[in-house]
Design a protein around this nucleic acid. Structure first.
Length: 191
DNA sequence: ACCGGGATGTTCT
DNA sequence: GAACATCCCGGTG
């Protein structure tokens, strides 16, 4: 289990996103393999929180790469992004789906509504709930993680040679760009 | 299986 | 006021 170095994140979000497929997100004893991601391309991307420039909410997106941008939406859900590119450019990759690997008892306790294990992390807000990611993880450094804090690992599993591609989910503006990547056929991909 | 609606509060117009 | 990078539940087939 090798921690991903800062340089790994220092690329365009549309290049980084498919490279995150197969990587392992770790929070405490809970581990899940990323199977679905979306790229958000910064101030030129109408679908991105960064489109209208830096605000208090999206400030982490404009910071250095390799940090977690966590935001609140629909009055009740938290979603997590990996900040990419370089400082000053508001790019990030949304984590939309993951396959539970370890700490499943903790995940089930955190997600009582999940009827099957494939429902634990199959969605951006589900994934955060299962792993215990919330406002206190906004800005967390994945390269030099706090004890028990979130980090990303490479366990030798290569990203898929030809990941499935589609348009992004849930957007009205910027919905035409094919910036969603996922592992075809994986049951942990969101519906 | 699929579909429709409600929850809930921050952010922006 | 409206929109929102969503999820859950209860209806019907």
């Amino acid at each position: 289990m090798r921690r991903l170095p800062r340089g790994f994140y220092r690329r365009d979000s549309r290049e980084l996103a498919p490279l995150l497929l197969g990587k392992v997100l770790i929070v405490g004893r809970r581990r899940a393999r990323i199977v679905e991601v979306e790229a958000y391309a910064g101030t030129e991307d109408p679908g991105s929180h960064a489109y209208r420039g830096q605000t208090k909410r999206n400030a982490v997106m404009f910071g250095p790469p390799g940090h977690l941008y966590v935001y609140f939406t629909y009055g009740m859900h938290w979603c997590a992004n990996v900040v990419s590119s370089v400082e000053g450019v508001g790019q990030a990759v949304l984590l939309r789906g993951a396959a539970p690997i370890a700490g499943l008892e903790e995940m089930r306790a955190a997600r009582p509504a999940a009827r099957r294990d494939r429902d634990l992390c199959s969605g951006p807000a589900r994934l955060c709930q299962a792993l215990g990611i919330g406002p206190s993880e906004d800005g967390a450094d994945l390269v030099r993680p706090a004890p028990g804090g979130p980090w990303l690992a490479d366990d030798g599993t290569p990203p898929p040679l030809e990941p499935a591609v589609s348009t992004r989910i849930g957007l009205t503006r910027g919905a035409e760009h094919p910036w969603r990547w996922y592992i075809a056929g994986d049951p942990n991909v969101s519906r």
